[in-house]
């Protein structure tokens, strides 16, 4: 799980163009949205693309993103439970 979390941090930074950040700057358990990263609704859609492109997981209802993208850890847990 920890390896997946670290990998995800790198992928998030790349996918969301968070140029100022390094993986170590993102707390695995901190809120991804509404927190210090300043992410918005387009970023949430972009994370859905990330799941689809990198892990083959389809999220058709963007509202599901709320639960999945609570933190990097919840995102990693969702991936390991749904990965094909």
């Amino acid at each position: 799980m920890d390896a997946l979390i670290e990998q995800l941090k790198g992928e998030i930074i790349k996918q969301l163009n968070l140029e100022d950040l390094k993986p170590a700057d993102i707390d695995s358990d901190a809120a991804l949205f509404g927190g210090g990263l300043g992410l918005d609704s387009i970023d949430a859609l972009e994370l859905i693309v990330l799941l689809e492109k990198n892990y083959g997981i389809k999220v058709s209802n963007p509202a599901d993103g709320k639960k999945i993208f609570q933190s990097v850890r919840t995102m990693a847990e969702y991936i390991s439970a749904n990965k094909k």
């Binding site: 969301l16 163009n17 387009i42 970023d43 859609l45 972009e46 693309v49 689809e52 492109k53």
Partner: peptide, 9 residues
């Protein structure tokens, strides 16, 4: 294909 919403916008 994986169009990116942050590009499309």
């Amino acid at each position: 294909y994986f169009p990116s919403p942050s590009v499309f916008v």
